[in-house]
Amino acid sequence: MSALSGKSVVVTGAGSGLGAAYAHHAASLGANIVVNDIDVGRAEQTAAAIRQAGGSALAHAGDVARWETAQALVDRCTAEFGTLSGFVANAGVLYHGRILDWNERDLRQMFEVNLLGTAACASAAAKAMLAQGTGGSIVTVTSGSQAGTTALGGYGATKAAVAALTYSWAMELAGTGVRINAISPLAETAMAAQHKAHLAVRPPDHEIPSDILPSPQVSAPVISYLLSDQARGIHGQVVRIAGRQLSFVSHPTIADPVLEGEWTFDAVIDAFERYLRHRQHKLGLSYAGPSESGRSKQEGFGTGPHPLRGQS
């Protein structure tokens, strides 16, 4: 029996790119797929390709920025396949803008699709899974941009908010059988191409290269794993997949040193000058491993050239 046999999964933004790769891979492992995209033609194209490959899929077009779309997707999945086993809230949009040149339209659309759309989908999915009493897996999508990237502050803010919601929802769902995790993927997609075109007209502002990206199919097995029963016990995590690198992204933590004292103005000055000024943290996504190279201590794990690095 395949790893996802008998499971029914909704994937939003699955008309192309990463979402389509997630849908195809989950279907290849036996899942029934509801393919969502705002573009009805693309949604139907992905669903048809899955069926032609011997899988089970149907298309349901809709804009996740509209709150009612999430419930419609859940209802369609349960009506057609009898259950909702997994929900991948992948749909998202990206606009560039620096602090001095943002406009309300672009910011509002990113927050409505990336944040409110994810919130609506996760909420509707959790309610359905809890009502079924059989558990389930919800996967949200965040990004390395949550740590800061020039001209992606708005996009990164939406993805940081998704991560924060995922942490909180994981606490709320603990012990219910409904799991929720986030993925922070890196892939060659239309969105990535848009960002690379932007990078081409300005100097790089970080050391992590983003000119060579893996295909969307590289991330797909991670999604399928998180949807599967093999991932029981994986809950409340942000999983990063970047080329040949697989890792967790650490939750926000309080960093050393933690100074004790009575914090008068003079004491604060002394603390910063003596202990904190030279311990400022790097901007942007960085590695917290044993060395600056970011290489794991598990040097023998995996084969091939040095892993790709980058921000999604």
Score class of each variant (00 low, 15 high):
M1E: 15
L4K: 05
L4T: 05
K7T: 10
A14S: 07
L18V: 07
G19L: 01
A20Y: 09
A20T: 03
A20K: 09
A23G: 10
H24K: 15
H24N: 14
H24E: 12
H24G: 13
H24M: 14
H24F: 14
L29H: 02
A31Y: 02
N32H: 15
V34G: 06
V34Y: 02
V35T: 02
I38Y: 09
G41W: 10
A48F: 11
R51G: 02
A53W: 04
G55T: 01
G62K: 06
A65Q: 08
E68G: 03
T69M: 06
A70M: 05
Q71W: 12
L73P: 11
L73T: 08
V74M: 04
R76T: 15
C77D: 08
A79E: 06
F81C: 13
G82K: 06
T83C: 15
Y95E: 14
Y95I: 07
H96G: 11
R98P: 14
I99L: 13
L100I: 15
L100R: 15
W102V: 13
N103Y: 08
N103M: 10
R105F: 09
R105Q: 14
R108G: 13
E112P: 07
L116N: 08
G117W: 02
T118G: 10
S123A: 13
A124T: 05
A128E: 06
A131V: 08
Q132F: 06
Q132R: 03
G133Q: 04
G133T: 04
T134L: 14
S137E: 02
V139M: 09
V139K: 00
V139Q: 05
T140D: 01
S143C: 07
L152H: 10
G156D: 05
A157L: 03
A157S: 09
K159V: 02
A160H: 07
A160Y: 08
V162R: 09
V162A: 03
A164H: 11
L165Y: 07
T166K: 08
S168A: 08
A170R: 03
E172H: 11
L173P: 06
R179Y: 02
I183D: 11
L186P: 12
T189Y: 02
A193M: 07
Q194R: 09
A197Y: 06
P204S: 11
D205M: 09
H206A: 11
E207M: 12
S210T: 13
S210Y: 04
D211Y: 10
D211G: 10
L213C: 08
P214V: 03
P216S: 06
P216D: 01
V218P: 09
S219P: 14
S219Q: 15
S219I: 14
P221K: 05
I223E: 14
Y225M: 04
I234Q: 11
H235E: 01
V239P: 01
I241F: 03
A242F: 05
G243H: 06
S247W: 02
T253E: 14
I254V: 15
P257A: 01
P257D: 03
L259S: 01
E262D: 10
W263S: 07
T264Q: 01
T264P: 00
V268I: 12
D270I: 08
H278P: 15
H278V: 13
H278G: 12
R279G: 09
Q280S: 15
H281Y: 15
L283T: 13
G284D: 05
G284H: 00
S286A: 12
S286G: 12
G294T: 00
S296Y: 09
Q298N: 15
F301H: 00
F301C: 11
G302A: 11
G302N: 05
G302Q: 06
G304K: 03
G304T: 04
P305I: 00
